[in-house]
């Protein structure tokens, strides 16, 4: 049996979906964040694979930028979680539900 690079893409799709489902079913804000990171990583895997399929380095460059942006996002996001936790003593996203109808 031979495998083609498309299998990386299928794996990326699977990881992405798992991340998305994780966002939907977990309540701990930090775990939620990890799921988002997983989704970003799945995207990165797809980008790297595309780079390989197309034979150019642009995909890797974009994956690199995604990493940088993800790092920035994590920093800000975790700071937000920290400040929410400080005021509400809770890291559950369901507890921050005042902004509603």
């Amino acid at each position: 049996m031979t495998l083609t690079p498309e299998w990386y893409l299928l794996l990326a799709a699977a990881l992405f979906t798992i991340g998305a489902v994780g966002v939907l079913i977990r309540r701990n804000a930090i775990v939620l964040f990890m799921c988002v990171e997983l989704m970003l990583n799945a995207a990165n895997l797809a980008l790297v694979t595309f780079s390989r399929i197309n034979g150019t380095l642009d995909g890797q460059i974009i994956a690199f930028f995604v990493m940088v942006v993800a790092a920035a996002e994590v920093v800000v996001g975790l700071a937000i979680i920290m400040s929410i936790f400080r005021t509400r003593r809770s890291a559950s996203v369901d507890d921050s539900n005042l902004l509603k109808y």
Partner: peptide, 29 residues
């Protein structure tokens, strides 16, 4: 609902990928 949506989403994307990329050859870097 999340799991169903996830399965559906993954299925759709995989089907799409499979059909789109079937037969393409990777050039390599």
């Amino acid at each position: 609902a999340a799991i169903l949506l996830g399965v559906g989403f993954a299925g759709l994307v995989c089907v799409g990928l499979g059909r789109a990329l079937a037969g393409t050859t990777a050039k390599g870097l």
